[in-house]
Design a protein around this nucleic acid. Structure first.
Lengths: 201, 201
DNA sequence: CGCTTGTGGTACTGACCGGTAACACTAGCG
DNA sequence: CGCTAGTGTTACCGGTCAGTACCACAAGCG
């Protein structure tokens, strides 16, 4: 059927569970969670609905597992930051802003998959919501630790400011487009960091 | 059926079109656009599907009209700001931040309906997308004008920074919750305004 | 060989979706 | 009175949704 929905991921011969997760993450991110049916996911994963339901109890559980994978990837980036600039939190902070800026202008400008899921799943008992909340809280805490290590006198304030700037940039590219305020994120972040670390802020 | 879906708006005897729009806006905002069916909207508007389709060509057109109403409301707030503090752009800017802060912590923490719609409707040919883009661009320009009138030497930069902070706060309450970084928005905005208007920024 | 385990394929269920046809009713208006 | 316009009601259409039953097949292993 729709060529957008086939072979979107699914490295040739991974186990079916991994193919399903890769296809689901790709389709959920590009088209939205509610817009993608399990049949399309199975097809894109080069398998079928039965195999999908042998690995996931329901679509909601598949969604939650996808969000867990997204969260794990986001978590892994913090150690990559530490590895790239060991013992230099200011450089890590700048590298964080740079990486975030690249992610903003990245693939098809669909922002943060966890934020998008939070918008699409307002039911507070959805199994994915605790994943979203936990991941975003962890991101914020990572950022606070990094700001504190960088010597910012008001680390929480700087971290929250950077956090909001990034979240705003990620969501605004979906409404105003990538040429909007989000394009200035990196410069803004650097200026904010400089303001907070040079003086009292 | 579900008590959440009936009598959600619809002042007793407005014309059906207005009742439908009020009900649709309410349900779309609270539950998401794709999650609400036209039947539920008609029911909440104390009418039926046929009358709905006599006033709107399709669900997508109804969505677009709802977004137009949301955009018109947002637009109207700028003149309210001007009326509340005539000739005092700094006060208008502070009042803007205060009003935004109240909206952040407001009803059920579902953020900005236009941003949410942008996340839920990634199809770039949806009739609602031009409404979203136009409204957000207008908001940004209003903010730039206000910052310029307030004497900020780098008005565009200040406006974009405030814009991103607000968008980030509105979306983050849906993921991290209202106790997260969004709670600091007003203080951050005031500090940012002060930073940009007191000196070069 | 038989047996198990995981996978693929097909067909199905019941519910809901967006959208429509056909008809009864009421109000306004001449 | 008759006529029209808008609304309400019911039933329906084709399509799609999440989820399942059932069977065929192939690999591993005794």
């Amino acid at each position: 059927m729709n060529p957008d929905f086939v072979n979107t991921a699914a490295e040739p011969r991974l186990p079916p569970r991994e193919r399903i997760l890769a296809a689901a993450r790709n389709l959920f991110y590009r088209h939205g969670i509610r817009a993608v049916g399990v049949e399309a996911i199975a097809e894109a994963a080069a398998t079928n609905k039965m195999t999908l339901y042998r690995h996931f109890a329901s679509k909601d559980e598949l969604v939650a597992e996808c969000l867990r994978r997204f969260a794990a990837e986001a978590e892994a980036k913090w150690s990559q930051l530490e590895a790239a600039h060991p013992g230099d939190p200011r450089a890590q902070l700048r590298a964080w802003a740079k990486a975030a800026g690249e992610h903003i202008a990245n693939v098809e400008a669909r922002g943060c998959p966890l934020c998008n899921a939070a918008v699409e799943l307002p039911e507070k008992d959805h199994p994915g919501r605790r994943v979203i909340e936990a991941c975003k809280t962890a991101q914020r805490e990572h950022l606070v630790r990094l700001c504190r290590a960088a010597g910012a006198p008001r680390a929480e304030q700087l971290a929250d400011e950077l956090f909001l700037l990034l979240e705003g940039a990620l969501v605004s590219v979906q409404s105003v487009g990538p040429e909007g305020p989000g394009a200035r994120f990196v410069r803004m972040a650097h200026a904010t960091i400089a303001n907070h670390t040079r003086r009292a802020g």
